[in-house]
Design a protein around this nucleic acid. Structure first.
Lengths: 227, 227
DNA sequence: CGGTGCAGTTGAACACGTTCAACTGAGAGG
DNA sequence: CCTCTCAGTTGAACGTGTTCAACTGCACCG
C-alpha cells in the first residue's frame, strides 16, 4: 500500500462522516471507521487524535455547505426576517442528515476549552464563515438597521443560530419539526425587535444587550497580565 | 453485610458526589465509586442504570440547595432585577464545587430524550422546584409585571437560568468570573425589558416571544393521536 | 428441620476509546 | 549491493462503561 498521508486522511474523514450519518456518533466505533476504510485502528489514531477531532471536520463541512446553499436562496430586498428564516431553515436542511450525530456534536463542542467549540481560536475559520453569512443576510435585506446595531447584528444573529442549533440537537420531535416552528417564530420576533430598537425608549436596553452579547463569547478579556 | 437497598443507594450517591467534586466526571470511574463505597462494581449498576443516572441525583441536590439558600436572601420589596441577580448568583455559588463536573452534566442532560434533561418528565420535580423559586422571586419583588406576562414570567426566568447555567458550564475563566459578569448584566436587562414590555408598542413582540417560549420546552404538542 | 423465595450482591466478560513500541518498505546515499 | 531514514502502518495492551448469569444469606412457610 503506502498511500500518501493526505489520501489516507481523506479516506478516513469520508468514511467517518458516512458512518456518522448512518449510525450516529455512539453507534460509530473507531474500529468500525478503521475497518471500513481498510486501515488499522492505530493508523486512524495517527491522523486524528481522537473521535472528537473528527467532529471538527464535520463542523467545517457543514458551515461551508450552509453558506453555499443559502446564498443563492437569499432574496435581495426582502425583509430581514424573511431572509433570516430562509437562512436558518437551510442550515437545518444541511444538518438534517447528522441529527443522530448532533447530540455528540454539542457534547464535544460545548467545553470552551475544547478546540471544537465554536468560540475557540481553532474554529475561527468556520465561525467567520458563519458570521459573514449573517452579514450578507443583513446587507441583502431591505430592513433598516439602527446604526448602533449594524456592525454587531451579524454576530448577534450568529449567536441566535447557535441557539437554534442547540435546540435542534435536543429536538426529539419527528423531523425536528419543533425546531422548524422555532425558526418560523424566531425570525419575525427578530424583525419586530429590530423595529422596536429604533425607538429612543429602547436605547438603554439595546446598549445593555449589546454589552451582554460582547461578554458571551471569546476568552476572558485580557486582564493586563504582568508576565 | 446485607444492608437495606436504600442504605446502599444513599452510600453510592454520597460517594459519587464526593468523587465528582474531587475528580470531576471523567476522572471518576464507576469502579472508583464502587470501591470507595465498599461495594462491588456490579452492585453499583444494580442501583444506577449507568453513570448518567448519578447525574440526576446531582441535579436534584443542587436544585434543593439552590432554593434553600436563595429564599432567606431575597429582599421583599426590592426591584425584580436585584432579587433575580441574588438568585442567579446563589445558584452559581451552589454549583461552584461541581464546575469540573459541569461539562459532563450538560452532555448528559442535553438530549431531550434523556431522563436527565431538565425538560423531561422525570425531572418534573426539580424543574417545578426551580420554576417555583422564580415565581417567589417575582412575587416578592416590587417590580410591576404586566398581566399578560405575570403567569409566564417565572417560566421565562427559569429558561434564562438554564441559559446562564449553560454559559457557566462552558466558562473557562478563573472562578467563572465571566458568568458572574453575565449575571450582573442580565439582571438589569430583564428589568429594562420588563419596563419596556408595559408599552403598548411592545405588545406584539411580547406576545410573539411568549409563543416562542411555549414551543421551547415540553415534548411535541399532543397531535390528536387516534390510538 | 428442610426448603423456597427473594432482595442484595458478586466477579467475569464484552466492546469500546486510546496509547505505544515495533514493523514495513520505498527511496537516498555510499 | 548494502545501509540508513523515515513516513506510513500495525496489533497488542490498558482502563473504561456496561451487562449478566450466578451466588449469598436471611426470612418465612410446611
Amino acid at each position: 500500500m503506502a498511500r500518501t498521508g493526505a489520501e489516507t486522511r481523506e479516506l478516513l474523514v469520508d468514511t467517518a462522516l458516512r458512518l456518522f450519518r448512518e449510525q450516529g456518533f455512539d453507534g460509530t466505533t473507531m474500529r468500525g471507521i478503521a475497518t471500513e476504510a481498510g486501515v488499522s485502528l492505530g493508523n486512524a489514531y495517527h491522523y486524528f487524535a481522537g473521535k472528537d477531532e473528527l467532529v471538527q471536520e464535520l463542523y467545517r463541512v457543514v458551515q461551508v455547505e450552509h453558506r453555499d446553499r443559502t446564498l443563492p436562496r437569499l432574496d435581495p430586498g426582502a425583509p430581514l426576517a424573511e431572509n433570516l428564516r430562509t437562512t436558518l431553515h437551510t442550515g437545518l436542511d444541511v444538518m438534517a442528515p447528522y441529527h443522530a450525530f448532533g447530540q455528540a456534536f454539542v457534547r464535544v463542542a460545548l467545553p470552551s476549552s475544547s478546540p471544537a467549540s465554536p468560540f475557540s481560536p481553532e474554529s475561527a475559520g468556520p465561525r467567520d464563515l458563519a458570521v459573514d453569512l449573517m452579514r450578507t443576510v443583513v446587507e441583502s435585506s431591505s430592513t433598516r438597521v439602527p446604526a448602533r446595531l449594524r456592525e454587531r447584528l451579524p454576530h448577534l444573529l450568529w449567536l441566535a443560530y447557535l441557539g437554534v442549533t442547540l435546540h435542534w440537537v435536543t429536538d426529539g420531535s419527528p423531523d425536528q419539526r419543533r425546531t422548524r416552528r422555532l425558526v418560523d417564530g424566531l425570525a419575525p420576533v427578530v424583525g419586530r425587535a429590530l423595529s422596536l430598537s429604533r425607538l429612543p425608549v429602547a436605547r438603554g436596553l439595546v446598549d445593555d444587550v449589546l454589552t451582554l452579547a460582547t461578554g458571551l463569547d471569546g476568552a476572558d478579556r485580557p486582564t493586563k497580565e504582568h508576565a
